[in-house]
Design a protein around this nucleic acid. Structure first.
Lengths: 182, 182
DNA sequence: CACAATGTAAAGCGATCGTTGTACATGACA
DNA sequence: TGTCATGTACAACGATCGCTTTACATTGTG
């Protein structure tokens, strides 16, 4: 009976169906059935709710990444997880980046949160690259990260096979980096 | 004295500074100084204006791509043009994809336009890949496209050097494709 | 001169926005 | 039993939303 979690989860659905600015308080509260009074008790403002939704979304995605990291190829697993995530949640572009874009002129706090989240994610990719390669390779990590973000964005205007294309490209780049070490 | 073009150009600035839903008619009209009456004579609705802005934006970017295609390496030139574009316009993520996200639950017409624009862009990338490789390679073209979209997205939360990383990755993938042909 | 095209200024439409206030129900715990 | 935290329902706040309307100025063309 955690009403706060109910609101966050329902708000996430509303923000996906519509956009952040486009989803009014009533639409945001409809899935959880909470009252406006309760929302403002917990979050203070709509912006506070958005921050909570973004934090929860990022936490959940990183959890999923960790759970799927068992396989041999840690880099390929990134893209398998992404594909599974997009199949479940739909491909409308990264929610964090969408929030950043909508609030880039309105909330410095949201812009900053997303920047930190993406920086943390890039570090996570770098750790996987190191695991696959046996050594650090920062520019390779950036390249894999770009393929990941590219696939996420492109899936909103193309089909999900772009994720497989990104996975194959990442494998090529890792293989080439291995060869260059010999 | 083309007022219509003035409105489109000014509206593009407003949509960049704020977001699409967040920029009201008054803000949209402020840069051009036009009246609401004139706007609705030309575009019929705010959605009509957004469509015109997106078409203009895409047309301008493709023009820029064509103008910069003189160099030897047609694929690398893609990323040089992107970097230059982002330096001029700022890196807030692809405007077309931002519009798609904001109107995904509100305007099928905008969603469709962006899908067609991105499809055309991917075909343009494929043509460059063919020029660089001497033969068609559809999956390589997709991979280059993903690097491009990834760099565009990532530049909004990191620095512009990600564009160079994408360019280097694209070069690697093209080189490997050349080797596989021998 | 007449006229159509194209523009501006300004008021106002109903609707919705994010937010707050008031009043009441519930259950846990002292 | 009393109290406190947490929830609900519902009306209303001022502001702003997208959009329409009325009325008037400017300009080029026949």
């Amino acid at each position: 009976m955690d009403k706060r979690a109910d609101i966050v989860s329902g708000a996430a659905s509303a923000f996906e169906a519509d956009c952040f600015r486009g989803a009014g308080i009533d639409k945001v509260l409809a899935p959880s059935g909470a009252s406006t009074r309760t929302l403002y008790k917990h979050f203070g403002s709509k912006e506070g709710l958005v921050l909570a939704v973004l934090e929860e979304r990022h936490r959940r995605f990183e959890e999923r990444l960790e759970a799927a990291a068992k396989g041999a190829d840690a880099v390929a697993a990134l893209f398998d997880t992404l594909r599974q995530w997009l199949e479940e949640h739909g491909a409308r572009g990264c929610m964090l980046l969408r929030a950043r874009a909508e609030y880039s002129g309105a909330s410095e706090e949201i812009v900053d949160l997303v920047r930190r989240q993406k920086s943390a994610f890039r570090r996570r990719v770098a750790a996987r690259v190191e695991a696959a390669l046996g050594r650090e390779d920062d520019s390779l990590a950036t390249q894999i990260w770009l393929l990941f973000e590219g696939a996420t964005a492109a899936a909103s205007v193309a089909d999900l096979s772009v994720v497989n294309a990104a996975k194959a490209a990442a494998a090529s780049l890792v293989e080439e980096a291995k060869r260059n070490a010999c």
